[in-house]
Design a binder for these strands. Structure first.
Length: 647
RNA sequence: GCUGAUGUAGCUCAGUCGGUAGAGCACUUCCUUGGUAAGGAAGAGGUCAUCGGUUCAAAUCCGAUCAUCAGCUCCA
């Protein structure tokens, strides 16, 4: 039997050889590190016999597949520890996740912080026992009996009787007295897990259904060595330092206060500069690309949102309507604007449109208010009041794919300028099994999804498909980035809409003299200014590029005798439009530099007698250090160039 | 909204058994006039999230509310 290794070399083994045996034949170290094996691309247990010629690859902790096996087994290890410490605990789902694992547990007592520590200790103890983990294939009905009567775990029985009801044979993994229904693969033995950290306990609903019972979910992460765990803990601490909520108040960018209301961010002067720069940047770019600006009010008659269909779909997540009664008793209801689209549609239909006028691209930084659930609020990235860089493009069907491509291009331009290179793109399509969630006919959806796919393909975007992620009026392309602790946030979006033109009876006169329906594209490259800047803060750790920095330069005179010259330098930079502060305190230069560094000011201009005599400054860059002396005019030219290039 | 945790000076945090509030940094003033990440001294700063209860006495114990954090659910 011939086994092909990842480097292309071939080796002969007798039939039934295991991954472990192959690893051992290659090297001792590999055999030690081996967690699983892929056989012709399929991930398998290390002790599974290989019965035919195959290409195999030994999986270690270094690979994503290795981590998944490791963490999945760790969740079983945790379950076993909990079962030994807390008899009667019932187990729901316990998968590996991107950063570790969790297990959902039903147990009458609340797990406390101390419990997590004792579970960790028990896990390490079970690891030290180095129990062999074995797989058993079992007919499904036998498994039902086993989990109902032997294991007495109703959740596993439910999975067997519902999710797996059409499956003949299932697999069960055993380690000592503990057993779990699981498709695997798993580690060969518990001893591989050398370091474990249980991070928190929170609640979850059984099967993610808020009408079902609440379970306790314990999150953890584990590693094959203490060293790797320490590195992970350090990374987490670094992430906390980058948290935009922390940096936002340290750097004076924004604030949140219950005196205004939760989820309603206030932009402080420094944060307002960042936001304003971004808005100016996008406005200029949109002007080049044929967008025209509009402004619309912050509230609108509720009938508008009933007509658009937003109100019934989203009434839960809106602030309650304002009711106004005039002296005749006539009542009107207004809604705090939850989205900008209906207003823009009215602008479109305010005059007769010819096919020659299209596409029409209406744009607005529109502030909207949504009553997000309290538990969902999160600094700037999830707020109740936020501003969308919203635009609606009205075009003819034959222009649609081009216009989607243009919108994708603009979004990519924005992301590239701001240095977001790790962006995932999701093609968000509707869920055919849940038709009630959507407006519009099946034909319209089919066309819309075909169009976005075509545009995405033409733009060469690497995307993944998200079924059920579409909005109620159409499919979309979403640009998703991660925050400092790895959580994903949707920023930019491009959405196709055949539904609103119907609801608002939008039309244009075609070359045949007849009325036709335009198509609408909703798009927002930043998405929400708040969320975008929140993620940008974490992405840059508050070290904004020069063009965005709230304070671009600070003049640091060494002693009082050069204060006058220092003021002149500051004025010169100011006159060139460079945001420049000056530190005139009677502190030593070391302290002034330290504080400027901590404030993350990109350029420090150190000035003493030497600089004054030569008409120069000493330029020190944030996190880079002294760059030497430069004439004031040269400095201004250099900084202006960097700012204008947005480099 | 749900489950759990947390809330003390502008910030980071101490505060024992219930006995009336503490540090460092920041801030203000004074001294110091300096060369690339913390010069010195003094001063000021708190209705211990809010409201209610227990108690001779509450930052501390109990309850409610608000807010924040983690996760779940949701996301136009």
């Amino acid at each position: 039997m011939v086994i092909t290794l990842p480097d292309g070399s071939e080796r002969t083994f007798s039939a039934g050889v295991t991954g472990l045996a192959i690893a051992t034949s290659i090297g001792k170290k590999l055999a030690q590190d081996a967690l699983g094996v892929t056989v012709d691309g399929k991930l398998c247990d290390l002790d599974a016999p290989i019965t035919r010629n195959a290409a195999i690859s030994i999986v270690t902790f270094d690979s994503p597949a290795g981590k998944e096996i490791f963490w999945h087994s760790s969740s079983h290890l945790m379950a076993q520890a909990i079962e030994e410490l807390f008899p009667g605990a019932k187990f729901g789902a316990g998968p590996a996740i991107e950063q570790g694992f969790y297990y959902d547990i039903s147990y009458p007592e609340r797990f406390k912080e101390e419990d997590l520590r004792s579970i960790e200790a028990k896990m390490l103890e079970i690891s030290a026992r180095d129990i062999t983990i074995t797989r058993e294939e079992m007919p499904r009905l036998q498994a039902v009996d086993y989990f109902r009567n032997t294991r007495q775990d109703p959740y596993k029985v439910e999975i067997l009787e519902e999710t797996l009801k059409d499956v003949e044979t299932v697999s069960v993994y055993h380690q000592d007295g503990f057993a779990d229904l699981c498709s695997g693969p798993h580690l060969p033995a518990t001893g591989k897990v050398k370091a474990v950290l249980l991070t928190n306990v929170s609640s979850s609903y059984w099967r993610g259904d808020s009408s079902r019972e609440s379970m306790q979910r314990i999150y953890g992460i584990s590693f094959p060595s203490d060293k790797l765990l320490k590195e992970h803990v350090n990374r987490m601490e670094e992430a906390r330092r980058r948290d935009h909520r922390k940096l936002g108040s340290e750097l004076g960018l924004f604030m949140l206060t219950p005196e205004v209301g939760s989820g309603l961010p206030i932009w402080l002067p420094k944060g307002a500069i960042v936001r304003n720069e971004l808005e100016t940047f996008l406005k200029a770019e949109q002007r080049k690309r044929g967008y025209v600006p509009v402004y619309t009010p912050h509230i609108g008659n509720i009938e508008l949102y009933k007509r658009s269909g937003h109100y019934p779909y989203y009434s839960d997540s809106q602030f309650p309507p304002l009711t106004y009664k005039d002296e005749t008793g006539r009542e009107e209801q207004y809604l705090l604007k939850p989205m900008n689209c209906p207003h823009h549609h009215l602008i479109y239909s305010s005059s007769l449109r010819s096919y020659r006028d299209l596409p029409i691209r209406l744009s607005e930084f529109g502030t909207v208010y949504r009553h997000e659930q309290s538990g969902e609020l999160n600094g700037l990235v999830r707020a109740r009041g936020f501003t969308q860089d919203d635009s609606h493009i009205y075009c003819r069907p034959d222009q649609l794919v081009d216009e989607i491509c243009n919108a994708i291009d603009l979004t990519r331009f924005v992301f590239n300028t701001l240095g977001f290179d790790d962006v995932e793109t999701r093609l968000s399509l509707h869920d055919p099994a849940n038709q009630a969630k959507y407006g519009g006919t099946a034909e319209v959806w089919e066309q819309a999804e075909k169009d976005v796919r075509e545009a995405a393909d033409r733009m060469g975007i690497k995307y993944f498909v998200g079924i059920g992620e579409a909005s109620f009026y159409g499919p979309k392309i979403d640009f998703i980035v991660r925050d400092a602790i790895g959580r994903k946030w949707q920023l930019g979006t491009v959405q196709v809409d055949y539904v609103m033109p119907e609801r608002f009876d939008l039309n244009y006169i075609g070359c045949d003299g007849q009325k036709h329906r335009p198509v609408v594209i909703h798009r927002a490259p930043f998405g929400s200014m708040e969320r975008f800047i929140g993620v940008l803060i974490e992405h840059t750790a508050g070290n904004f590029p020069l063009w965005l920095a709230p304070v671009q330069a600070i003049v640091l005179p060494i002693a009082e005798d050069v204060h006058e010259y220092a003021q002149e330098v500051r004025q010169a930079l100011f006159a060139a439009g460079i945001r420049t502060d000056i530190d005139l305190r009677s502190e030593k230069i070391g302290k002034k530099i330290r504080e400027a560094e901590l404030s993350k000011i990109p350029c420090m201009l150190v000035i003493g007698k030497n600089e004054q005599e030569a008409g120069e400054v000493s330029l020190r860059r944030h996190r880079k250090g002294d760059e030497g002396r430069i004439g004031v005019n040269d400095l201004i030219a250099k900084l202006r160039e960097e700012i204008d290039q947005r480099s």
